[in-house]
């Protein structure tokens, strides 16, 4: 039997991997995948809490977060594609037109 703590440990680990990925990776698409990883880490923790604490609230919340994540991806990829058409790059370091 897997305990609640193990689920939460995995979920926290996924969240941390995603977080540091966002901070240190240079490719926008990879950053975006890391963000999705963080969202799914939250989903995993929600489901685990919901299962072990015996309530449906967490399960329901997951539907909302999945929907929100889908909306975010739709808009985000559109912006990335539009930017790639303009600049032919999605590397964060090369996106530096905004300066004082």
């Amino acid at each position: 039997m897997i305990s609640l703590e193990q689920y939460i440990a995995v979920s926290s680990l996924l969240f941390a991997i995603g977080f540091f990925g966002v901070l240190f990776r240079k490719n926008t698409l990879v950053i975006y995948m890391c963000l999705e990883l963080m969202l799914n880490a939250a989903n995993l923790a929600l489901i685990a809490f919901s299962r072990y604490h015996g309530g449906m609230g967490g399960n329901l919340f997951v539907f909302f977060t999945i929907t929100v994540a889908a909306a975010e991806v739709a808009v985000g990829l559109a912006i990335i594609v539009a930017l790639f058409r303009k600049r032919q790059t999605v590397e964060v370091e090369e996106l530096n037109e905004l300066k004082n």
Partner: peptide, 15 residues
């Protein structure tokens, strides 16, 4: 570019 920066930072803070 502003949109992309806001997107990444905004999504990060939301998560």
């Amino acid at each position: 570019e502003a949109g992309l920066k806001y997107l990444i930072m905004g999504a990060l803070s939301s998560t």
